[in-house]
């Protein structure tokens, strides 16, 4: 099996689905010509393979999402790219009041089979370009939210998202585009709404997703050298959220930490902690902890940005602290 990047895995998913279904169209800002295909290169080359179906749009996110919704209502399967998740705020009315509402409000008669792809993350881009709205997006009935961490998951989940009949917000991550992983040449799908155990361990459960899975796996290696084995659950889909594996894991390890990149308060971690204690309270040997981003608008300075975000070291310290009394 060949190792490819997360970026290439996404492109392969788009290519396969464009070839599979003539109703799939891909629209976004600067996705055809600029830099050879998108600000982050995911669509590079596709416009030559599928002329007319990969199109540049105006910089008008409310229209990119809204025109996509209309096209989806009319039987197309648009994959729209929002250059960064920060710009999704310009389209917020279309995402929340239109995409997520159509099917229910019109009593099942209208479908919106549309994917909104958008990278979250950071990279010395300061406060308005370094956010992740996974918690906001995941709180909306009618929307599905996916955030893959590996190239393998990115490809399989994007293909499922494109074939899904509901609006899916597909969160990518700037820091993951260049990461590599094994992806088979054969076609495969990963179902939405199914979590996966990424590492087996008996001492402590980590529930995470997206970039923080990568950091957690680094932390797991460090901790393994100390004799602590993490059981790592990757949620992969944030709405609907599958906590079955996480609950099963907590019942085994009796310890849990939720690791997320976003702001701590009212974050997804808070929701996950609440659900875990509702369903596995009697199995817990310690309060569930959270590792999360600091609650400040992201500064530009390199040292301040680094201090704001959680990395593997933060996971290692949190695990050590929780298990300190035990080992």
């Amino acid at each position: 099996m060949a190792e490819i990047t997360y970026r290439e895995a996404l492109k392969r998913a788009l290519r396969e689905e464009l070839a599979h279904d003539p109703d799939v169209v891909v629209w976004g800002e600067d996705i055809v010509a600029y830099g050879g295909g998108g600000a982050y290169g995911v669509t590079a080359g596709l416009s030559k393979e599928f002329p007319g179906r990969i199109r540049d749009t105006p910089i008008a996110e409310e229209a990119i999402v809204g025109v996509g919704i209309g096209a989806a209502m009319g039987g197309c399967r648009p994959v729209v790219e929002l250059m960064t998740i920060n710009f999704a705020l310009v389209a917020w009315d279309q995402i929340v009041n239109h995409a997520a509402k159509q099917h229910h409000m019109f009593n099942g008669k209208i479908k919106v089979p549309m994917v909104m792809r958008s990278p979250a993350g950071f990279g010395r881009t300061a406060a308005t370009h370094s956010q992740n709205f996974d918690a906001w997006l995941s709180s909306i009935p009618g929307l599905k939210v996916v955030e893959p961490a590996t190239p393998y998951d990115a490809k399989g989940l994007l293909k499922s998202a494109i074939r899904d009949d509901d609006p899916v917000f597909f969160i990518e991550h700037l820091q993951l585009y260049g990461t590599r992983g094994e992806v088979p040449d054969e076609e495969y799908f990963i179902p939405l709404g199914v979590s996966e155990r990424k590492r087996e361990g008996k001492h402590l459960t980590v529930v995470t997703w997206g970039r923080m899975l990568v950091e957690t796996m680094k932390a797991a290696k460090t901790l393994s050298d100390e004799g602590v084995e993490l059981d790592v659950i990757d949620l992969r889909t944030l709405r609907p959220m599958d906590l079955s594996l996480a609950i099963e894991s907590v019942k085994k390890t009796n310890h849990a930490i939720v690791v997320e990149e976003g702001w701590r308060s009212i974050g997804l971690g808070a929701e996950i902690v609440a659900s875990l204690q509702e369903q596995a309270f009697n199995y817990l040997d310690a309060p569930i902890a959270r590792v999360a981003g600091l609650e400040v608008p992201m500064p530009y300075a390199k040292n301040l940005e680094r201090a704001t975000l959680p990395f593997a070291d933060d996971v290692v310290m949190a695990v050590r602290a929780m298990l300190a009394n035990k080992y």
Partner: peptide
Amino acid sequence: GGYAIVGGHLPLAVGLAYANVH
């Protein structure tokens, strides 16, 4: 449908028109 966020339905109409052409 009737839509109740002022102006929110205009992009939807454009998208439906695209689907007709497509």
